[in-house]
Amino acid sequence: MGIDLRIITFRDIFQYEAGKKSRFSPEFQNLSAQIIMDKDDMVQLGLKDGQNVCLENEMSKIVVKAIQTDDEPHPGLAFMTNSPWSNQLVKDNINDRIIPDFKAILVQASASNESVTNLAELLERLRH
């Protein structure tokens, strides 16, 4: 069973630093392919901190690591850094708004046994 989430992208200095060092490094993938979620949302999906979650919408489907938030409760909201992972899910239907919905990514989230979507797979998707 899945739940609906709104993903908002944010900036993280450690993810930025990892991306500066190398876009192709495991650190960049680890810090990008993760989603910060509300505790109750994670309970609802049967997820423990660090387990994998599948995020899916009409644009794409990716598997990332779920991290439990240390913020106040924010059910239904989740946070990811701007990266090739979050961008898989951002709609291109921008019409006259020009700015894509980087901070309003609507997805279905569900627990997943699959491994985290790696950069090689994202690159493959870019070519097709």
């Binding site: 991306g19 876009r23 644009m59 794409s60 090739p84 291109d92």
Partner: peptide, 30 residues
């Protein structure tokens, strides 16, 4: 190709793409 939505990135990847950059990125790779 890292910073923009996937569908836009894919259009760029498929165009005649010329990149001036000191460092390797998803965009230089494509």
């Amino acid at each position: 190709l890292s910073a923009l939505p996937f569908v836009i990135a894919r259009s760029l990847a498929k165009s005649q793409l010329v990149v001036i950059d000191p460092r390797r990125s998803l965009t230089t790779d494509a």
